[in-house]
Amino acid sequence: MRRRRRQHTPATEPDLPITPMLDMSFQLMAFFILTFRPVPTEGQLALVLPDAGNTAPSFASPIEDKPEGYVATVSPTGGVPSDITLLKDGELEPKTFKMTAGNQSQAMNDFYKALGEIIREKKAAKGPLPKLEIQFGDDVRYQFVIKMLDDAKLAGFEKISPNLLGKAVPKKPAP
């Protein structure tokens, strides 16, 4: 049997044009580099809202020691906090941190230090951590509200309630 002679064709080199792909890739890369903006991480400050009425306070459970309470007030002056006061439950005279145009950050620092001192004392005495209610004037800017809540958290307070100044929840009358 005669073998058919295979027809010999010249081998062709496969040619993949990568230039358009490279162009496209560079364009995509340029687009993503130019539009890349790392989004800042968002976090939360966890708070406990004060009671709406004469209901049982949520802070303390009946089996644990009732924690001490502190009330801070922040009075407004055109959006910026002015005087800050800090009053412990049962005391009559609040500690005042006077705020003037020049010493704004100083007063806030002093307030932060005072909060830290309270927590340090409580931790040393191994007592329950106190709760803190901060009452803000109605025109205090939210930026400062968060700053003060942040300071209170950093100082070590865990149960913090924001409230409107002058809208304090009326306490239950003693039986």
Partner: peptide
Amino acid sequence: DYKEINEILAAARAANYRDIQLR
């Protein structure tokens, strides 16, 4: 202003949500 924030917090409180997270 805090007044506007407080309105929202009051709405949450009135709807029985006590734990709130400020972002």
